[in-house]
Design a protein around this nucleic acid. Structure first.
Lengths: 142, 142
DNA sequence: ATAGGGTCTACAGCAACTGTAGGTTCAAGA
DNA sequence: TCTTGAACCTACAGTTGCTGTAGACCCTAT
């Protein structure tokens, strides 16, 4: 029987985070001692590990909820799990693309500025005047 | 004289967002009509454009506040502006690196799973068992 | 028996907005 | 001039995924 602190240490989670997961129904309500403290077993340890690892891979809590539901019905088709993971991959790739556009522009901004005084600073100028901006991520929509 | 709605349309901002920026002191309190509606001029239009463009480049509101303060003192050294932009670039690059690690792992997960039933799904297995995970982003600390 | 660290609930706060409710104002048309 | 209805007003709650705090209580080792 594990206390919430031990569970926290074993999974690299904060105690409050575990209580939060319980609150939103992602973790089950555990048994309690006479005094009212939570006690966990290995099932809960595994479930929390699953949640944490999925979070590390960038899955939203809603997506994790979906995956946990799916893994509770082992006879169902794996296609749905696949779809959730695919969706996550696409989201990650979209974020990478966006950040790479930002990187290009930030680098260009930094490269072009060799002023001394703020008054002549190209960086501020670029930020002020959108027309100097190469990328079109904001007009492309999405 | 621009109404808040016109300003919003011109800068691609939501009306509430403009009021929010005013609330946190990023936009100044504008003049008002007799009836109490906000009216803006070109100074505010430029300031809001600056804010929005900076946000599109991923700067935090705090960083933008700093940049706006700096641009108010044109005689100061440009180095501080440079430092803010450098910091932002490093943050963007760190996020890209992290996301690329996620992409690798998600792709591997998807590639390795050709099961039919949830019970045999490699994706869930990987999520369950951290040891199957190639990357070490969570042990590397930060 | 007591000391201390761990745990409890309940709530506030973070970023950066977004949405809602219920009321008021403005500008254009009849 | 009056009326309509879109735009505006304030104030507050909600979003995501936690994190921190206060003040009280429990558990275990000595």
């Amino acid at each position: 029987m594990l206390s919430i602190g031990t569970l926290a240490r074993r999974t690299g989670t904060k105690v409050q985070t575990i209580r939060y997961y319980e609150q939103i129904g992602l973790m089950p309500e555990p048994g309690r001692t006479e005094g009212g403290q939570r006690r966990y077993g290995n099932v809960e340890l595994d479930r929390l590990s699953f949640i944490r690892h999925s979070r590390q891979l960038g899955f939203s809590l809603e997506a994790i909820r979906e995956l946990l539901d799916l893994s509770d019905s082992p006879e169902r088709s794996c296609a749905e799990v696949d779809a959730v993971a695919q969706r996550q991959l696409r989201e990650v790739e979209a974020r990478i693309a966006r950040l790479e556009a930002l990187r290009v522009e930030l680098r260009r901004m930094l490269r072009d500025c060799d002023a001394d005084r703020v008054a002549d600073c190209r960086i501020l100028e670029v930020l002020r005047d959108h027309e100097q901006c190469l990328s079109d991520h904001d007009r492309a929509g999405a």
